[in-house]
Simulated assay, not measured.
Amino acid sequence: MWLQTSCSLEFDAPVATPFLLMLRPRSGGQQWIAREQYVLTPSVPAVEFTDTFGNLCQKLVSPTGPFTIRTSADINAADFADAEPYARFVPVNHLPIDALPFLYPSRYCESDTFTEMASLITANCAPGYGQCIAIVEYIQQSLQYAPGSGQEIISAAEANTRTQAVCRDMAHLGIALCRALSIPARMVVGYLETLRPMDLHAWFEAYVGGRWFTFDPTQHDLEGCRVAIAYGRDAADVAIYTQFGEPLELKRMSVDVQRLPGPPT
């Protein structure tokens, strides 16, 4: 499926402000970036680098006054996330090296405090994909998905005490529970074509059966094209922008995803 994605961020900076940005999706897995545009207004120099997790990042200093970041991309993406109910648990000693960082507790995913709970939730499941599904079902039964209800980032432990949550919080809980079972799990931020109201979206992936699979506690199925922008241990690793110095207000943010009739010409 061909999609056109776009994201726009508008700021008004009282002083020149350093930024780290993470807004460029990369080709790989179930997505191919055919064309993209990245516009800074006014134009300023930017340095691009790849972080520890392979995300494409940009470093720049905004000028004083109005500053806008606009990105768009034409992307060929899978129209559904595949599933494998019989994918087995991979013992830690057989995991690839790049999956190991996603086993540890992290800032917002205190997996070391969820060991007993994760074992109870998955007590009747075969190790692997089935455990991940049981975790997703537990989150859906425990938390009401309430998009737009939480601006403050909360951890898995705090999310587990609430009755409603945003996608990011639900992903944190899923990641922590998976890691408590020695299943590598990582957060993904990106676009979901079917999301309403439209915004950037967060879900998680777990490593079972020798590869990463998508899990999304906000959905009862995995329909709709997804475009991943960034991967990380939790929300601290996948912020689309990080601003340094005096706090700066985001004046406006807009996100859009449209289907294209075919490949761009």
Rank of each mutant, 00 (worst) to 15 (best):
M1Q: 05
S8N: 10
D12V: 14
A13L: 09
L20D: 14
L21W: 09
M22V: 11
L23E: 01
R24H: 15
G29P: 03
G29Q: 10
I33H: 09
A34P: 06
A34T: 11
V39P: 03
L40E: 01
A46K: 09
V47W: 13
F53P: 09
Q58R: 14
V61R: 11
F67V: 04
R70G: 02
D74W: 00
I75L: 01
N76A: 10
A77L: 05
A78E: 11
P85Q: 06
N93D: 14
H94Q: 14
P101N: 06
P101H: 08
P105F: 10
S106D: 08
R107C: 06
Y108F: 10
C109Y: 10
T113I: 15
F114M: 12
T115D: 12
A123W: 03
A123L: 12
G128E: 00
I135E: 00
V136W: 04
Q141S: 13
S142I: 06
L143F: 09
L143H: 10
Q144K: 10
Q151G: 15
Q151K: 15
I153W: 13
I153M: 14
I154L: 15
A157K: 15
A159L: 03
N160G: 11
R162P: 04
T163Q: 13
A165I: 05
R168F: 06
R168V: 08
I175F: 08
C178K: 00
R179K: 08
A180L: 04
L181T: 07
P184Y: 00
R186I: 04
L195F: 06
A202D: 11
E205M: 03
G210W: 07
F215P: 02
H220Y: 11
H220T: 14
H220Q: 15
D221C: 10
E223T: 13
G224Q: 07
R226Q: 04
Y231E: 07
G232V: 08
G232Q: 05
A236T: 09
Y241C: 10
T242D: 10
T242M: 13
G245Q: 02
E249H: 10
E249S: 14
S254Q: 15
V255N: 02
P261Q: 00
P263F: 00
P263D: 01
T265V: 11
